[in-house]
Design a protein around this nucleic acid. Structure first.
Lengths: 219, 219
DNA sequence: GTCTATACTTGGATAGAC
DNA sequence: GTCTATCCAAGTATAGAC
């Protein structure tokens, strides 16, 4: 029925080109970013990957599984990258700067996008919530570590429960991502980060770091 | 085809019972809450409303329009309610208490749920983002007003740009809603609010309020 | 205004040829 | 492993009877 028989490459099976599986994962990532969770069907992802729709089910069993694999892939990459950035930051001011840099880099790379879409889709897909939740756990740990690093040596460290701060930070990042994506406007987030920077500098004056030389308390 | 002809009430048109339109809006709200954006089809909503699927299109033209009407309905209700609560709060501590109370009440009533689902669905539905974004605008204004009220009379008022705080507050609420809904766990949010309360009390000691008699604006 | 019936589309998933 | 073909379910939307 379909016009074929001519020498088109369409319809020709490509034998095991390195890894269709990996290509599908990459395609799932970009499809989640551009079309959202609702637009990430097996057909849409396969189109992006340049392969057949049936391969989604052959390699992953279901669309949801492929999407989770996509989330795993970006998560691992970003976790490594952010770990380095955070390790290089000491104190509140530098950590806020790192946070802003991570935000920008992440917005471009789109990891938060992937995460946000998976969270968004979890409300409508039975069982997905638990899977996504489990994959979110390391990020709370990461944020808690960053919080400890940011407050180390400051009297604030004893006043604020790092677990709560970590939760708030993750929630805030998530909320910012949703809002920024909603109207494509980054400026509000940028403004917020620059204000945060200014306030953290101010905080550094009120609560000087104890660890270094004698910045003794003004009492 | 379907067995009919007997005296079942099924299949009998209910003439203009007060307002099917309003019933559909209510059904859309509960469907968004229980099934999420992806599960809120015309059929699902009509089932909840106990009426026919075709009525969605007769009354609203499209599913998206009905969902937007649902968002409008909850938004208006909650805006009135929160306005009263915020008007009764003066100073940082009381405002944080109000924020926590609003959070709990809202989680039960499910307005944030509806908003979150609409934001979630906006990534996949062309044109929806702009509509939702416009409906979010009043909430930024509301948060900004609450921020002004919370900081009135404190030296912090001159240090903190209220617009940035408002943006952060909305983003944080949104993020918390998504996270709480993901695994059905409220405890992290509760912990965060109680920590916020403790810190705001502490802040009240560091930056004491200048003048305050509960009446007209303290200058 | 409300219902039934239906046309049309898209998507998940499987069977089987290559 | 990859593709074609196909089945089936669910959704949007419209036409027309009541």
């Amino acid at each position: 029925m379909a016009k074929q028989g001519v020498t088109t490459r369409v319809g020709q099976p490509r034998p095991n080109t390195a890894g269709t599986r990996a290509e599908l994962v990459e395609a799932a990532i970009t499809t989640l970013q551009t079309e959202g969770f609702g637009g990430s069907s097996a057909r849409a992802i396969a189109r992006t990957a340049g392969c057949n729709q049936a391969l989604v089910f052959y390699h992953f069993g279901s669309v949801a599984n492929l999407l989770l694999a996509a989330l795993d892939a970006t998560s691992e990459r970003r976790m490594v990258r952010y770990g380095e950035a955070v390790d290089a930051a000491d104190g509140l001011g530098p950590m806020v700067e790192v946070a802003a840099r991570i935000y920008r880099e992440d917005l471009d790379a789109g990891h938060m996008s992937v995460l946000a879409e998976m969270i968004a889709g979890s409300s409508s897909t039975p069982g997905l919530g638990a899977e996504v939740s489990a994959r979110l756990e390391p990020w709370f740990g990461f944020a808690e570590d960053a919080t400890l690093r940011a407050l180390r040596g400051s009297p604030l460290a004893d006043l604020v429960p790092t677990r709560d701060v970590a939760f708030a930070v993750v929630a805030l990042y998530l909320g910012i991502e949703f809002l920024a994506h909603l109207d494509g406007d980054r400026s509000q987030a940028e403004s917020l980060f620059s204000t945060a920077k200014r306030l953290s500098d101010l905080m550094g004056l009120v609560f000087p770091v104890a660890a270094h030389d004698g910045g003794d308390d003004p009492r």
